[in-house]
Amino acid sequence: MYRPPKYRKDDKEFIFSFIEENPFASFILKGERLLATHIPVLAEGNAEDFRLYSHIANHNEQKAFIEDGAEALLIFHGPHAYVSSSWYKEKDISTWDYTAVHVNARIRMQTAEELEASLERMVERFEKKQESPLYYKDIPELMLKEHLPLITGFWLEPFKIEGVAKLHQAYAKHDIAAVTKKLDKSDSSMERELSAAIRKENKTD
């Protein structure tokens, strides 16, 4: 990942929180060519020591290359947006602000029991926010028996982790204020989230 020093984010708490808050990742493997799938990837552990887990459909082309010891790259995406130089006080170059975390990891295959346990945790994670949640235990047993053989679960054990946050660091306060004001007015929730991240990073109101 290209990371100029001022944009690097290697703090363990930042990394872990970022993954927790942005679990929909790009899962990339080297097959006969580079292959990518977009899947939810969750963390187990804490900021000091964690592993990731997920699953894919068996008819996915990546399935043929998922095995113990294989390397995968996970890309977790945060808010991002185009920033026009027309917002600045002086003429400048337009840019794109963004946040992301890259995780290089070794794959370890899950047992059938581990797959079910991880699915239960994943469903719990996302269903608990619903008005009438449907938890794993609520899914009909026959449906589970039919679907579980169609997916493959795996652990992802990180060996290299890189974070980046390009959030207008080192810009003049009046330009930061102008950028966040424009983003706050956007109809896009992502652009408003980016504005909040820029303000937090630069410690501005």
Rank of each mutant, 00 (worst) to 15 (best):
A72L: 08
E21C: 07
K160S: 00
L42W: 09
V83W: 08
Y98S: 06
I107N: 10
Q62R: 05
S26Y: 13
L144C: 00
Q130Y: 11
W87M: 07
E13L: 14
H102G: 10
I139R: 07
K182A: 01
D68W: 08
P158H: 00
E201C: 00
S132I: 14
V83Y: 11
Y53N: 03
F65E: 02
I28K: 10
Y171V: 07
L194E: 07
M1F: 10
F24C: 08
Y88H: 06
K200M: 01
N58L: 11
I15G: 12
K181A: 02
L74W: 10
G45F: 07
I107V: 15
E13V: 15
A196Y: 08
A112Y: 07
K128A: 09
Y136S: 09
L73V: 14
F16K: 06
Y135H: 09
I28M: 12
S195A: 10
K89R: 13
V101K: 04
Y2F: 12
V101A: 02
E113F: 02
K6H: 12
E13R: 15
I176F: 02
A57P: 01
I39Q: 14
D187Q: 07
P5H: 00
R125V: 09
H38F: 13
H147Y: 09
A47D: 11
L42I: 13
P158E: 04
A170H: 08
K173A: 00
W96R: 04
E191Y: 05
G153R: 05
Y82L: 06
R106P: 14
G78H: 07
F159G: 01
P79F: 01
M1D: 11
F14P: 11
F126L: 06
E67Y: 11
T204F: 03
D10N: 13
I19Q: 06
L167Y: 05
E113Y: 06
Q110P: 13
S54E: 02
R3D: 04
M122S: 14
M109Q: 15
I56Y: 06
D92Q: 13
L142W: 03
K89M: 06
F126C: 12
W87G: 06
A178P: 03
Y2I: 02
E127Q: 13
I151K: 02
K166H: 03
A172R: 09
A72R: 04
I39C: 10
P40K: 11
H102C: 07
H147P: 01
V123K: 02
E113N: 11
S54G: 11
E71Q: 07
K200Q: 08
P149E: 00
M190Y: 05
P149G: 00
S84E: 06
N60F: 07
E21H: 14
K137P: 09
E162N: 04
P5L: 05
T111W: 14
V123M: 13
A112F: 09
E61N: 00
R125D: 12
S84Y: 00
F50I: 03
A70Y: 12
A25K: 09
A81K: 05
L74N: 07
R121N: 14
A36P: 14
A47W: 10
T111P: 15
E162K: 06
R106L: 14
E191K: 03
L183C: 01
S84C: 04
A72N: 03
E21Y: 03
V41F: 03
P5I: 01
P5R: 07
L29Y: 11
L115I: 12
D68R: 05
D138Q: 10
A117E: 15
F16Y: 15
H147E: 15
